[in-house]
Design a protein around this nucleic acid. Structure first.
Lengths: 152, 152
DNA sequence: CACATAACCCAGCAATTTAGTCAAGTATTA
DNA sequence: TAATACTTGACTAAATTGCTGGGTTATGTG
């Protein structure tokens, strides 16, 4: 479980998709403008998101991406893991790399903590994040201030 | 809050220090051998850990590093933040970079989640990790989940 | 059909981070 | 004084990040 800016970009883009995808597919160009992420980087991210079954693509005019499942069935951890996809193997994969006892011990300690974090992120869905935001900010202005950004 | 291998190295080293530091300072050379981390990389990490007040250095023969506080007063989040020390400011620091509304919205959503993770890691101390390991080694299946589910 | 739209794919590139080596210090203790 | 051990800095190879720019395919619409 790695938590870097790459994962944040992916979650941000998925949230944008969730918030604007009610009336059909959303093009990456739109997300690029709104979230200020380069189009090509979005293409890389969504290529992985699509291969991991998190989004569905629609080609041609009026096409774009849609969230593949219902929002409460998409966990944040899935999004982050999808774009990282290093699978890590965490060096000592429990096999022969554990030479000293101390190595195994602290390794297990970290693995336990890492599992906790992943479990936490598995319990948070896109819908959760949106709902929580709605509760916090009761009065949101949804006016679209479509400012032209450099990625247009 | 960034969660990478660098932070894992730091936490691993601090755990090694906690487990072997009862009888005085522990040299980086020892940790290097036990945890299979290069000595120079440990030096970089501990330089930051020391500057952030997490460890105390003892020079001269028989010297090394000691954990600066009691183990239950050292949070995992502090260790990770100490070696990252980018402070990030997350681009749009709530000031003038937030041009469009969509950017602010999803940004806040991510910030909220990030705060949750940091809050969780702040609640876990070195002592907690060691205690938890002892409980698990007593062949007790983890029935109690440490993670609080804020969205549930 | 022609065309615009948008997903898809790929090669490469600058900047940053990671993890490490090497060398030259400085403080402390035996 | 000599040995130990931390401290500091310069430097580097590898990987990752985020982006530019070129194409190709599929698919709606005039």
């Amino acid at each position: 479980m790695k938590l870097t800016t790459k994962g944040r970009y992916a979650v941000t883009a998925m949230l944008d998709l969730a918030l604007h995808g009610e009336s059909g597919p959303v093009s990456l160009a739109e997300i690029s403008v709104r979230q200020e992420i380069s189009l090509s980087y979005l293409e890389q991210l969504f290529s992985k998101l699509r291969r991991n079954g998190l989004v569905i693509s629609t080609r041609g005019p009026g096409g774009g991406y849609s969230v593949a499942r219902e929002l409460h069935q998409v966990a944040v951890s899935e999004i982050i893991c999808a774009v990282n996809e290093s699978v890590d193997a965490t060096q000592c994969g429990g096999k022969e790399n554990c030479h000293s006892h101390g190595r195994c011990l602290t390794h297990d300690l970290w693995e336990g903590l890492s599992a906790q974090i992943e479990e936490f992120l598995s319990s948070v869905s896109l819908q959760d994040m949106i709902d929580r935001q709605r509760v916090q900010n009761a009065s949101l202005r949804q006016d679209k201030v479509m400012v032209q950004r450099p990625y247009a």
